[in-house]
């Protein structure tokens, strides 16, 4: 007889867990982790970009800046581990969210029309892993010098100019284009996730995201561009 499938039971709700567990497994909790780590990673990107601009003051200035950063190994490693942690959080949230999203619609539509989402928003799951690959390359290239044929410890300016010529420079510029997509949606999305926009949605958050993205990515991209065009040279 008639116990009915459609009779709602509270059965599908997850069992009670600790607050932390709940936060770490809930969709908004994961989003908040994504946004929180995103805020610091974005700020790091901004700082990194500003640091890079010292290349225009010449080798001395840049190398001195590099030396300054290495002055206190404890601090340096603290920051590095912190960044690693943030990237870890970002990746953890990405994996958890994406796994769930991939099962939420097992059968897709034959036809699809996008009305408001952007290419940037829909490509986050692509630009994210690609950026990760780029960062690994970048560290091996300009931090450890592992894949840099002409790497000199401590000679930041030299490494930069010799490392960003030719195809490498193009790779860096392409990566910045990717970063632009990622940041443009990411920064706006992060503000929304942190609950910032008041009233009717959109304009302010979008404007902030656009300005920030242009600032960071253009700032970054000028360096390889300057190397490629010979503005920066040994």
């Amino acid at each position: 007889m008639s116990v009915v499938a459609s009779s709602p039971a509270a059965g599908r709700r997850p069992a009670p867990r600790s607050r932390l567990q709940r936060f770490l497994t809930s969709s908004i909790g994961l989003k908040l982790i994504m946004a929180f780590s995103g805020v610091f990673l974005s700020l790091f990107a901004l700082g990194h970009m500003l640091g890079n601009l010292q290349a225009y003051q010449g080798a001395e200035a840049l190398d001195a800046y590099g030396a300054l950063l290495h002055k206190e190994p404890a601090l340096l490693w603290g920051v590095r581990l912190g960044l690693l942690g943030l990237v870890g959080m970002h990746i953890f949230a990405y994996l958890a969210l994406t796994r769930r999203n991939n099962t939420a619609r097992p059968k897709g539509y034959r036809q699809r029309k996008w009305r408001e989402s952007s290419y940037a928003s829909r490509s986050m799951t692509l630009t994210g892993p690609l950026l990760l690959a780029f960062i690994v390359y970048h560290i091996l290239h300009l931090t450890t010098g592992t894949v840099h044929p002409d790497y000199e410890e401590g000679a930041v300016y030299h490494n930069l100019v010799t490392g960003l010529g030719g195809v490498n420079g193009l790779i860096y510029i392409a990566a910045m284009a990717m970063l632009a997509f990622h940041l443009w949606h990411g920064v706006w999305s992060m503000m929304l996730t942190l609950g910032l926009p008041e009233g009717r949605y959109g304009s302010l958050g979008r404007t902030v995201a656009t300005i920030f993205t242009i600032l960071v990515t253009v700032g970054f991209a000028t360096v390889p561009l300057a190397v490629l065009t010979g503005v920066l040279h040994l």
Binding site: R12, S27, K31, R100, T103, R115, E116, S121, M124
Partner: peptide
């Protein structure tokens, strides 16, 4: 409670695409 339930039902996560609003 509402987010717990929505997650348990198997809906995906919001990544702020904005299609819903449109």
């Amino acid at each position: 409670a509402m987010i717990d339930q929505a997650d348990g039902e198997g809906f995906g996560n919001c990544t702020n695409h904005g299609e819903c609003e449109a």
